[in-house]
Design a protein around this nucleic acid. Structure first.
Lengths: 244, 244
DNA sequence: CGTACTATTGATAGATATCAACGCTGGTGG
DNA sequence: CCACCAGCGTTGATATCTATCAATAGTACG
């Protein structure tokens, strides 16, 4: 079974066997981290790069009145901070949401990885996709209404998790509380709850505990105005399953 | 007088004289572009990089119901799309807001620039600051209320324009309509209008036509919860002018 | 089998959007 | 140089959405 990092980077394009072997080396030793643990705090300047192997983490900021905004989800295969080589201090905090397993990759090893052209290109691609995703989140929160925000997020995660093999058809584990969804979408947890009920009532999803089933992916995508172009994945087979 | 690009890049650190001379070459020939003109459209894959020399441009997306979300302002010294070398197609559109003067820098020239270590580092820094700014905009729209959103944006622009020498004390030209501010902040133009009136009534700003005066920068920053760390500028002299 | 989150529900308040009209201003052509 | 026009800014009245507050019900975990 391919590791999540290799799997993610190969979403951009195939890697030489030597690169794959190197990537297998890089992802250890792993470290288990509990839920709701800060990995890097605003103001710090870590020298290593964290990579998520299992579980969900996030970037967030808290504003003076206490409101928290989650600015990104980090799922298996995602790097936390390829930045850090240039900037002096983090301007936000990175924390686990669920229990996670994480690797700390030393700076030197990242540089060694960047020597390999295929990997370097894949790193670039990953960073650009992260930024595009951030833009899409801004659209989500700034322009869409509550139902669409949540639906759009679920569509995005379906594709991202599919890329690293963490879906089962249109089903996946979403180890996130409603309060965390609220901090992500700029809503209240009460309102997120009501939105989820509407999505269930409309036959779009099933969500029980952490177990999400997207009952009609085509309809959920149409409903939320989801356009996957910003994820910059290679052409899919069934580009759009169209309506029905 | 130093050109805006050099000025912006030197906000990160001084450049060798040779680099400066090179940058002077790179920013021509200039091109004048009217307001509200698309420079690059979603779906296209341009081979050149656009640099803004004068005026304001933006990144935006339009969602199916017709709502537009502006995701970034591009001010003099900002690159539009250093990305494009890796990704196949733009996932958003770039357009002028005001009349602009722009340079198209050919791919080859960008690569030549990247050969120079100081410039390459400055480019990296600029790209990372762009991303950090995007995160802050997500916080703005997702977590702050209307008055604070607008005030925060004005504080950010004060610093960004200061960097490239486009302020006069706490005064600058803001060539943006209220409708565009609305598309930026996720509000309605009517509501932006009312917010601006409140900021005026509270003695925080003066805004007549395109001419903005920040009457009490310290208070405006405190009011909006503005923390400049995400712009990653070098230490300022008067780090915080404190209250009054 | 408690205990503490997490999810759910109902009632109400508050913020922001929507709709519609009018006034201003800067630019353009006569 | 003036008069007109179109876009922008402003205002008021009302509708909607989303937040807030508060209580109850589930659920998972030790």
């Amino acid at each position: 079974m391919m590791n999540v990092l290799t799997r993610k980077l190969e979403a951009f394009g195939p890697l030489p066997d030597a690169d794959r072997l190197f990537l297998d080396e890089v992802i250890r030793p792993v470290r288990a981290v509990g839920p709701r643990v800060d990995l890097i705090r605003e103001g710090e300047a870590p020298s290593d790069v964290n990579l998520i192997l299992e579980g969900f983490a996030c970037r967030y900021k808290t504003i003076p009145n206490g409101t928290r905004q989650i600015m990104a989800y980090l799922v298996p295969g995602d790097f936390c901070d390829l930045h850090v080589f240039i900037l002096k201090a983090m301007d936000h905090t990175i924390a686990t949401l669920s229990p996670c397993t994480v690797v700390k990759i030393p700076r030197a090893q990242i540089l060694a990885l960047m020597e390999r052209p295929a990997i370097a290109r894949a790193f670039w691609w990953a960073a650009l996709v992260d930024e595009a995703t951030l833009r899409e989140w801004l659209v989500n929160v700034g322009a869409r209404k509550a139902e669409h925000r949540v639906a759009h997020l679920l569509c995005e995660l379906l594709l991202r998790l599919e890329t690293v093999g963490l879906t089962n058809g249109d089903t996946y584990e979403l180890p996130i509380t409603q309060a965390e969804l609220a901090d992500t979408t700029g809503l209240t947890s009460v309102h997120v709850n009501r939105v989820l009920q509407r999505l269930r009532r409309d036959g779009l999803i099933t969500l029980k505990g952490k177990h999400l089933v997207i009952l009609d992916a085509a309809r959920l995508k149409a409903f939320s105005g989801f356009n996957p172009n910003y994820l910059h994945l290679p052409e899919q087979n069934g580009i759009s399953e169209q309506s029905l």
